[in-house]
Structure formats: structure tokens, C-alpha cells
């Protein structure tokens, strides 16, 4: 298993007040993403566990794009990957961000 940790400073905190969200399932070509609002307002940390070697640059690019689009400040994001394609990863991240944006 490969473990990657990426850290970002975001331009703004993630909107909404949901504390946690989980999207996706650990299944072939899929992944699960756990989002938790536990960090200071403009910090974001992403931990990725994947059995697939040699894709560090792709992960870095997909996450950088996500951080730019969603500005997930305050979120600790944990990923269990089972060989998902980059577009699936991007989709799950945006689904997670949408759930965290909820207010109630």
C-alpha cells in the first residue's frame, strides 16, 4: 500500500456546517472519501491510501485542481482508493464537498 499526504492552504474555509461526510465505496475502480471539518479555517490535509504504485503526480494534479475549485478550507480528507480513475476521484471529491456545504 502507498500512503500519500498532501497539505494545502486554501483561499477560504469550506462553506456550510456539516461536520463529516462520506462518499463512495472501496470497490474495484472506486474509492471512498471521508471529509471531516477538523482543521483551522484555511488549511486542508489529504491522506491517500492506494494499492496502485506510480501515480503520485496524478493524485497531486487532481487534488490541486479540486482545492482550486472547491476551496476546502478546514477539511481533513481521507481517501481509501481501490484503483479509481482520476475522473472518478474528481467526481467523488466534488460530491463530498457538496455534502459538506450543506447547512442545518
Amino acid at each position: 500500500m502507498i500512503t500519500l499526504t498532501l497539505r494545502y492552504t486554501t483561499r477560504a474555509p469550506m462553506p456550510g456546517n456539516a461536520r463529516r461526510a462520506l462518499v463512495g465505496v472501496v470497490a474495484s475502480g472506486n474509492l471512498e472519501v471521508l471529509l471531516e471539518r477538523t482543521l483551522p479555517d484555511t488549511e486542508c490535509a489529504v491522506e491517500i491510501a492506494t494499492p496502485v504504485r506510480g501515480y503520485d503526480e496524478v493524485w497531486t494534479a487532481v487534488l490541486a485542481d479540486f482545492v482550486e475549485r472547491a476551496s476546502p478550507g478546514g477539511l481533513r480528507i481521507s481517501i481509501n482508493d481501490s484503483g479509481a480513475r482520476p475522473d472518478t476521484v474528481a467526481l467523488r471529491l466534488m460530491q463530498g464537498a457538496r455534502l459538506m456545504e450543506a447547512t442545518r
Binding site: M1, L34, E36, A49, P51, S82
Partner: peptide, 24 residues
């Protein structure tokens, strides 16, 4: 024991298999 508790399989990593936060 929700996923945020991270109670995962202690064995799957030995097989190079990803764990799930709720162990399914």
C-alpha cells in the same frame, strides 16, 4: 463506530488491499 472512528481491518494491508473506514 462510524467511519470517522477508523475501525479498519488490521489484516488487509498485508495483502496490499485497501481497507474501508467501516470495514464494509
Amino acid at each position: 463506530l462510524p467511519p470517522s472512528e477508523r475501525v479498519r481491518s488490521p489484516h488487509l494491508a498485508q495483502f496490499d488491499l485497501p481497507a474501508a473506514f467501516d470495514d464494509g
